[in-house]
Nucleic acid binder design. Structure first.
Lengths: 179, 179
DNA sequence: GGAACATTGTCAAGGCTTTGACGTTCAACC
DNA sequence: GGTTGAACGTCAAAGCCTTGACAATGTTCC
């Protein structure tokens, strides 16, 4: 039975504050569900913000930097080989238009190559150039160093539990997924 | 020992694919850390996308709809009472400029009131109007219904474990937090 | 074959966010 | 007390994403 924390909550400790306050005023709200979603949202946000800030120091060349979404696209292409733009969008979670614009940028820097498919002339095949592979290897290693810094807070067993719980959570049915 | 899944992974199953592929080519990458962060990121993204899609049906009035960030701001003001804009930004995780713009919108619809503070004439005190309170109660109840749909996939004990693991993860030190 | 329909990548428009700058107001310090 | 410094809210610029439209190409089905 400890004292409630001092007067000024911050982004993270506000979760407690909000759940308590809302569940007192709105009886139809489930505090458990609210806490779960809010915790998940804010934890991911904090983690993403930190990893993005660390990534900001990585320079692509003297003029441009590798954006967070740029790295995501490189990851998709590195892991899944030559792919049509539509598939890249589905695997990266972005719209086709966003991928089209981002690829334009990456292609201008010589990291990915675009060539029209021969089987289906509507589609374009995207593929990492050798320079793109080298850039991805360098940048993702740096990015993963930040991931390791975070992951080290949990034991291996706890990391497995966390991934397992999230995986089970994703088996929720009747979900509005991206088209 | 089951067969690997069929040829075409989607946004969620791509996590497995990517972790396996990258850890084969980049030895300095820690697969555990990568899987943890990527799972967290994509699970939250999927959940947010679904909840946002459900929220899209809620109408503010005949012309405007309540955006996802609008609801966040209403939650902050509902839970923490009258607040300066700076505090609202800190608690909602947005920049002061973004809050300023969003509040402009909410104030135009009569949901929040702005009045200059008397103690510090630089600051503005933000507060829910009675209509804002009523709107928040209605919209957040609907939003929480979606949260309950997701939370129901886990048992109460699992929900507690998940929140506990995320809380422990947030105790990582030397983190770049928002100013 | 040809007609209706679906799909792919791209463009334009709009929305939302961040960063950096600014005027205004407060605080600190000699 | 006047000056130097800081903090607050707002504005302008830029970036990134989404949706909806479109031309080009494929597919289906009579």
């Amino acid at each position: 039975m400890r004292e409630p924390e001092a007067a000024e909550p911050d982004y993270w400790t506000f979760v407690d504050h909000a759940v308590r306050s809302v569940s007192e005023t709105l009886p139809e709200v489930d505090p458990d569900a609210m806490r779960l979603v809010m915790t998940l949202h804010r934890a991911t946000d904090l983690l993403s913000y930190d990893l993005h800030a660390r990534l900001g120091e990585i320079k692509l060349n003297e003029s441009a930097q590798l954006s967070s979404t740029g790295l995501r696209l490189l990851l998709v292409l590195s892991a899944a080989g030559p792919l049509e733009l539509r598939r890249v969008a589905a695997l990266s979670g972005m719209s086709r238009a966003a991928v089209s614009a981002a690829v334009e940028n990456l292609a201008a820097n010589g990291l990915v190559g675009k060539e029209p498919s021969q089987e289906d002339r509507r589609t374009v095949l995207l593929q990492l150039t050798p320079e793109g592979q080298e850039t991805f290897a360098r940048c993702f290693a740096a990015y993963n160093a930040g991931e390791q810094h975070w992951a080290a807070t949990l034991t291996a067993e706890e990391r497995g539990q966390l991934v397992g719980l999230l995986t089970k959570l994703m088996q929720t049915q009747d979900v509005q997924r991206r088209a």
